[in-house]
């Protein structure tokens, strides 16, 4: 493309945007609203992911060692746990430590435990706290190590862990469906709106064809117009989401402390990386689809 033509195309695109003022505003509005919904949903999904990630990381297997197990069996058990490919972290908790924890947990009522503290009197067991590399593996791994010699019993929050994983999986699926649905809707809406601006200029396109314009010569201004509208339509939701999310994070963190939130900077970067190319792409795609029908002269 020659520089002269490029200038002409950009000029035509800008002129057309200004000439079709209301139509341009409508197109920008459609893109902005669609991308705003999409972006908001992305934020929710980011944070749900963060939250479930957080919960998952707290999921662990507690393996209580059989009191009857001898020194030999205990060493063998430790060796097997360390070399297990699906486990990433293990921590030995002696029964004294377990007692300390229990006391701390009971707070004011810790006196009830007086008398259970001695080496012989402690009813608690030595244990290992284990984490799997992939949180979803927890059930399988727990069932496997249950049968190792020297294991008293294994606790991994069965009955809580499985539904949680099912729930987070479902949320992620719904989020994905929403995003795909909104994306498709956006392309339709934008193609439709831009088709109107193309329709207004169908006479111009026809004359261009008669005086010997190539199809690409006709297309380029519309493509620039579409991508420009798409870009503005993407910048608006990015700004709204940036400031809106900052306010939301501030409010939530000063009112509900324990909910982990993605930092606004990270979210904005992610949102820009997605929405800006998407807006420009949607605008271009809408233009190309719309012009095609009018090129057949």
């Amino acid at each position: 493309m020659r520089v002269r033509s490029l200038c002409y195309f950009l000029g035509e695109a800008l002129k057309s945007i200004l000439r079709n003022g209301w139509m341009s505003i409508a197109s920008i509005g459609v893109v902005a609203i669609t991308l705003l919904i999409l972006g908001s949903f992305m934020i929710i999904s980011f944070n749900v992911n963060l939250f479930t990630q957080d919960v998952k990381e707290q999921v662990q297997i507690v393996l209580y060692i059989d009191e009857a197990a001898g020194e030999e069996t205990r060493l063998e058990l430790e060796r097997r746990l360390v070399s297990h490919p699906k486990l990433q972290e293990m921590r030995f908790v002696s029964k004294e430590e377990a007692m300390e924890r229990l006391k701390r947990k009971m707070g004011d009522q810790a006196y009830l435990l007086d008398g259970y503290e001695g080496e012989e009197d402690n009813p608690l067991r030595d244990s290992y706290e284990l984490r799997t590399i992939v949180p979803e593996d927890i059930t399988a791994v727990a069932k496997e190590i249950e049968n190792y010699p020297g294991v008293g019993y294994v606790d991994y929050g069965s009955g809580i862990v499985e539904p949680l994983f099912q729930f987070t999986g479902l949320i992620r699926l719904i989020g994905l469906a929403f995003m795909v649905g909104l994306g498709v809707t956006a392309v339709f809406l934008i193609a439709h709106t831009i088709r109107l601006t193309v329709y207004i200029r169908r006479k111009e396109i026809m004359i261009m064809k008669y005086v010997g314009a190539t199809d690409w010569f006709i297309r380029w201004p519309f493509i620039f117009e579409g991508s420009f509208l798409g870009m503005i339509g993407a910048i608006i939701p990015v700004l709204i989401i940036y400031y809106g999310y900052q306010a939301a994070v501030f409010w939530i963190q000063s009112n509900i402390h324990f909910i982990p939130m993605m930092p606004p900077q990270d979210v904005t970067t992610e949102i820009i990386k997605l929405l800006l190319p998407l807006g420009i792409g949607l605008g271009m795609l809408g233009s190309v689809i719309s012009v095609r029908r009018f090129l057949k002269v």
């Binding site: 002269r4 033509s5 000439r19 111009e204 026809m206 004359i207 005086v211 010997g212 010569f217």
Partner: peptide, 28 residues
Amino acid sequence: MVFQDFRLLQDRNVFENVAFTLRVTGAS
């Protein structure tokens, strides 16, 4: 090509309407 209904672009002046033919060929 000359048409019965002229087919001029109403939002452009006479000069631009005539220049249109040259522009599409990429004239300077």
